[in-house]
């Protein structure tokens, strides 16, 4: 693993020979800088892994997780309970469908936006547009939902009032999915474009000049210079997104769901909240969370493997 990583990330390692101590002495400032994130990951990501075993135990208050007795069915009671529950599979389906839709519409949006911004010549307009597009990212989903209700509610919403219609934006499952995805894209495309703008800024301007000399038009320059220039960034982000195909944020679906659309709106994170956390069934919560993580890991590794097969670098 370590060796592979070195090969993938740089050539320094293969050229220089020397002990670990020598590196520490030479680059101690960099290692010091690294220390803080490492401590963060150990304390907040690795130490808590001890509690994964709750998924296989009968939870008891007041004793350590090591002392808790094993759950029924050799510890698999909670997995069986979850897998037997129709609501669980419904949540899995909804999570995957909503995430795929988010990926289909939400993933290209920031790329397109970044390219459009990049083509703008008038830099003040560019900056203003950029800032306005970022803003929704800083609103909480609860606020976005209340604003959306004022705009889109079937009866009292502004849009329906003005048009004199009763489009069920939030109360009909199909309409709800469209609203949910569209608002999600709107909230995120500005923020998501930052990383692509940075990648575009890193493209050597000589390439554009050479293309112009060769008579390439604007669209051709985008197609043959800009897009290939940010291809590796796109692939890395795509892999990370695919790795999260079964994961989901909590606030967005929770804020947007209502009883009329629960059939399509209940996702794993909200199911876990209701069945596990609110009912103090921490075992069920942990079991579902573990299941989610394992599936996500497979997706992550799978897409990484695929991208390397296709000649891209992947993320590890």
């Amino acid at each position: 693993m370590g060796k592979k990583k070195m090969m993938a990330t740089g050539i320094v390692a293969t050229k220089r020979k020397g002990s670990f101590g020598a590196y520490i002495r030479r680059y101690w400032q960099l290692y010091l800088l690294l220390l803080l994130p490492v401590v963060y990951f150990v304390v907040f990501k690795y130490v808590p892994m001890e509690y994964i075993q709750i998924a296989f135990k009968k939870y008891k208050l007041g004793i350590t997780v090591w002392e808790m007795p094993l759950a029924k069915n050799d510890g698999f009671e909670w997995f069986i309970k979850a897998f037997k529950n129709p609501k669980f599979w419904l949540s899995v389906r909804n999570t995957v469908v909503l995430n795929l839709l988010d990926l289909t519409f939400g993933f290209p949006a920031p790329i397109i936006f970044a390219i459009i911004l990049n083509e703008l010549r008038f830099s003040r307009l560019k900056k203003v547009t950029q800032t306005i597009a970022y803003m929704p990212h800083f609103l909480s989903w609860v606020i976005i939902y209340s604003v959306s209700l004022a705009l889109f509610a079937d009866n009292d919403g502004m849009i329906n009032q003005v048009l004199g219609t009763k489009i069920p934006f939030f109360s009909d499952p199909t309409h709800w999915i469209v609203s949910y995805i569209a608002i999600g894209v709107w909230q995120n495309f500005g923020w998501g474009s930052i990383i692509y703008l940075a990648a575009i800024a890193g493209i050597n301007p000589e390439l554009y000049e050479a293309a112009m000399v060769d008579g390439a038009g604007r669209l051709q320059r985008i197609w043959h210079v800009t897009l290939p220039g940010i291809r590796s960034t796109i692939v890395v982000l795509l892999i990370m997104n695919l790795g999260n195909i079964l994961g989901s944020g909590f606030d967005r679906p929770f804020a947007f769901q209502n009883n009329l659309v629960l059939d399509v709106a209940e996702v794993l994170s909200t199911y876990v909240y209701k069945a596990g956390i609110k009912s103090l069934q921490l075992e069920l919560t942990t079991a579902v969370g573990l299941f989610q993580s394992v599936i996500c890991l497979f997706f992550l590794l799978g897409s990484n493997w695929l991208s390397r097969k296709l000649g891209e670098r992947g993320i590890f």
């Binding site: 609501k87 009883n259 009329l260 209701k274 069945a275 103090l280 069934q281 069920l284």
Partner: peptide, 20 residues
């Protein structure tokens, strides 16, 4: 044990869908 919230959600869903 622990079913309160899940069944409450299912019940409210059933009520609301049946009304509309």
């Amino acid at each position: 044990n622990g079913m309160g919230e899940v069944l409450k959600t299912a019940r409210d869903e059933g009520f609301d869908k049946s009304v509309v």
